[in-house]
């Protein structure tokens, strides 16, 4: 009994992705008096995903604010408040709703500092939910990260694990630039180690999750876990895959990618977003520019087909990239 107790105490604390998000927000609201959290149903309801649960009770309605369904207004609130001394945390319930507020994001938030000759500082963080897999169909399931990574002035991170979710939220909120934190809805229940208290995960630093010799799998967000599974399955075909979790898309940790590819000589990029014009295109281009002489095979890309996200489970299953598709694409590419 006493022994079991001891083991329990020593075991690192595990937390679900959804609770790690809450903890990250909690730490930030605690340490930054100028920070507030605003979004649709983030206060009374604790967000439709549950990740702001308890924050209203702890920080009060002055700091945790329910807004009308007015995304352009909410995003503008973030820009204007950030430019004038607050540190807003804006919750955009689904990433698909970027369509409602893209001017505030693309033409105002991303560019204001540059257009003003550096005379504005925008410490605003935006949380938003991406990803398919729940039969929520074409307007509630998208992965639109390239809408954001194409905009100079924004930082974009996409945590795959509870640890990174908390750490990246804290880093994002301590950053004096606009940072988008892209969350993933199928990962909300995912358990992982999460330390107590505040800690940062450096924005712009990738994580080598698994070392390997003859293939680099590059992924982010939930696809990291599919890539890890694929790496396991690829052993059987004599492939010893390294897996990189990008964590941050912009800025991008090109060094870690290039170093890995120079070692393994092969790369396959995995993302859930539509493959065509996806972030994988940028990664493949960088790899061939910076490591062309080291490549033993074309750089592979696994992504969703060129269609909106379908509703029917039968269609959605065939839409979403997974470990099986990663293995198949890798084998095709390497001829094994």
């Amino acid at each position: 009994m006493a022994e079991a107790q001891l083991k329990d105490d020593q075991a690192p604390r595990k937390l679900a992705y959804v609770n790690a998000i809450t903890e990250g927000l909690h730490e930030v609201l605690k340490e930054q008096p100028e920070a507030f959290l605003a979004g649709e149903d983030v206060a009374g309801a604790g967000s439709v995903f549950g990740y702001t649960s308890g924050l209203l009770a702890e920080f009060g309605e002055h700091r945790v604010i329910d807004t009308p369904i007015s995304e352009k207004g909410i995003m503008g609130l973030g820009v204007g408040a950030a430019a004038t001394g607050c540190r807003p945390i804006i919750d955009l319930m689904f990433m698909d709703f970027l369509g409602e507020c893209m001017d505030e994001v693309a033409n105002q938030m991303a560019k204001m500092r540059y257009m003003f000759g550096g005379h504005a500082r925008l410490p605003v963080t935006v949380l938003t939910m991406s990803g398919a897999g729940m039969s929520l169909a074409a307007q509630h399931s998208q992965s639109l990260e390239v809408w954001l990574t194409h905009l100079p002035g924004l930082k974009v991170v996409a945590p795959a694990t509870p640890y990174d979710a908390k750490g990246l939220i804290i880093s994002a909120c301590r950053d004096d630039n606009p940072v988008f934190v892209l969350l993933n809805k199928l990962s909300l229940a995912l358990q992982g180690e999460v330390p107590e208290g505040a800690y940062e995960v450096e924005i712009g630093k990738a994580n080598v999750l698994r070392e390997g010799k003859n293939l680099t799998l590059i992924a982010y967000s939930r696809m990291v876990h599919e890539a890890m599974q694929a790496a396991d399955q690829l052993k059987e075909f004599g492939i010893d895959a390294e897996v990189i979790d990008l964590r941050s898309l912009s800025p991008l940790d090109t060094d870690t990618i290039v170093k890995s590819v120079k070692k393994t000589h092969r790369a396959v990029i995995v993302h859930e977003a539509v493959r065509f014009s996806g972030f994988g295109g940028e990664l493949a281009a960088q790899i061939q520019e910076l490591a062309f002489d080291y490549l033993d095979a074309p750089v592979g890309r696994v992504g969703a087909p060129f269609s909106p996200v379908p509703y029917s489970p039968s269609l959605e299953q065939s839409y979403m990239p997974n470990a099986k598709r990663i293995v198949a694409e890798t084998r095709r590419l390497l001829g094994v």
Partner: peptide, 9 residues
């Protein structure tokens, strides 16, 4: 919607 849209479409 041939199963493509579902309830919301």
């Amino acid at each position: 919607c041939k199963g493509r849209g579902g309830s919301m479409h």
